[in-house]
Write a protein that binds this DNA or RNA. Structure first.
Lengths: 182, 182
DNA sequence: GTCTATATGCCGATAGAC
DNA sequence: GTCTATCGGCATATAGAC
């Protein structure tokens, strides 16, 4: 038995996610990844095309996890509460997985499939539609996502440093935004 | 005249900005930068401490340029129009300088001085205060910046791909947000 | 104090043997 | 499907000429 290692693509992706999660994307090198898995660097290329393709797989896994959080929000809540719960779930997820979250939304190369994204925001769009009506649903949806994503990005990059209760400000901003559409 | 090159720190920063602006941060290497300037790589270290310090200088220049755009907005406009003009100026700047803009707001290492940022958003904060009152000024300011920054980030990373008029949606979202605070 | 020349040790990636 | 060997490029650092 000359080469007993027998590595799998899933293993590679999982380990890559773990390394990114702890120290950021820059901490992920194929050399370190291979060493952690107990194989040599070139062996990885039997399972992944290159580093970009690996990152694309990482981002797909991230979006599926976030999507699952959206889908698990109590579906028979009033539209406004359900919407608030979804938007809050995104922020909670981002704070629990800061490096992973930012990687998924800021790398233009590793963009996932469009259909997945549309499917992902489906629960969001439905709740928004109930509140603002179908005419302005897309604009209102884009603004809501922008508000949530922008707040998260500013927080994760330490750009909101003037004290106060950031969670309270987040809630207040969302409530104001939705009030404005009513 | 053995060493006629006579390079300056300003030249280095300006050239670095140009290289980042055309092809992104990843396109900036000190080797290429030195070659463009007609000197060897180690020569750069006489003017900059390292690459991170250079990027910090680049980001400072970016924020000063953006700050200038804010300050040049007609100051005797009604608060609401002035605020809309400032927020729109940020989006225009970001689209004109996508790589530079994202670098300035997404790298945790190269964060600029806090005082500068506070000073930068001064015109913004004043307009917001006039509209929503001083009690909620900070929360409203954070939400406004989050909405604008988030929309920009989603646009620049090609995450808003379902057609429609993105500029119109941007304006509508901001108007709704401000309405909600009134 | 400015430059050049040179060196170390990473990185992603490829070729070819087993 | 794994390995060894190797490539070019990268950031960084030091020695020494002028």
């Amino acid at each position: 038995m000359p080469y007993p290692s027998q590595i799998s693509r899933e293993e590679i992706i999982t380990t890559a996610i773990a390394q990114i999660a702890t120290n950021g994307v820059h901490a992920l090198s194929l050399g370190r990844l291979a060493k952690t898995l107990g194989v040599s660097t070139p062996s990885l290329y039997r399972h992944i095309a290159n580093k970009d393709e690996l990152l694309r797989a990482v981002n797909l896994a991230t979006l599926e996890r976030l999507f699952a959080k959206f889908a698990s929000v109590e579906s028979d809540l009033p539209a406004r509460e359900k919407l608030a719960a979804i938007l809050n779930a995104q922020r909670v997820f981002a704070h629990a997985n800061p490096h992973i979250y930012q990687l998924a939304f800021t790398t233009p190369n590793n963009r996932p499939d469009e259909n997945l994204l549309v499917q992902m925001v489906q629960p969001l769009q439905e709740s928004i539609g109930e509140i603002v009506g179908t005419t302005h649903a897309l604009a209102a949806l884009r603004g809501a996502i922008a508000l949530v994503h922008g707040f998260i990005m500013l927080e994760l990059n330490d750009q909101l440093r003037r004290g106060g209760d950031l969670s309270a400000d987040f809630q207040a901003a969302i409530e104001a935004y939705l009030r404005g559409w009513s």
